[in-house]
Design a protein around this nucleic acid. Structure first.
Length: 154
DNA sequence: GCCAACGTTGGC
DNA sequence: GCCAACGTTGGC
């Protein structure tokens, strides 16, 4: 079992949006970074737990808990010329981009802001908090995951 | 294979 | 809107 942090801009797709989806599930399309893709394609397993993080917004931070809802499969938007995620170098036989479904798991009592995360010594080695990090999908340790979840419950 | 130019991310 | 960090592209 692995643990992850996945970023989303809430103006585009928020944790609330995920809850409102049919089956509370959303294909995580549009990732066009190889490292992030590799995490989804090679390392994620159904049932892995996810910290759902809002970025590029007024209060960046963790807003809920989700889980991996499917095995990896090709991101259909890469084949669609009308999609902003279209990739002309991808073919059905040799897709370049893979995704997993993300499924709602549980609410937190309150969000845990980036500012809050930075205050905790136990979290100072989190990849999210390392300088220059821009990956939209990051592994977290079980300890980090549990600690942050606890911060969001009270 | 190097590296300059360019584009994107994301906090502030 | 700024800008640091870093990934990607493409000429050579």
């Amino acid at each position: 079992m692995n643990y992850w942090l996945m970023k989303s801009e809430p103006d585009v797709f928020s944790f609330d949006d995920l809850k409102k989806r049919p089956k509370k599930t959303e294909p995580w399309n549009g990732v066009r970074n190889y490292q992030a893709r590799n995490f989804m394609r090679d390392e994620m397993q159904v049932g892995d737990h996810i910290l759902f993080y809002h970025s590029s917004c007024e209060v960046p931070g963790v807003y809920g808990i989700a889980k991996v809802g499917s095995k990896p499969y090709p991101d259909s938007t890469q084949f669609d010329p009308k999609s902003e995620y279209y990739d002309s170098k991808s073919t059905q036989d040799n897709p370049r981009w893979f995704l997993v479904d993300v499924t709602y798991e549980m609410d937190l009592d309150h969000h845990v802001s980036l500012e809050e995360l930075k205050k905790h010594k136990k979290l100072e080695e989190m990849r999210l908090l390392q300088r220059g990090n821009r990956l939209s999908i990051l592994p977290v340790t079980r300890e980090e995951f549990d600690y942050i979840k606890k911060l969001g419950l009270s």
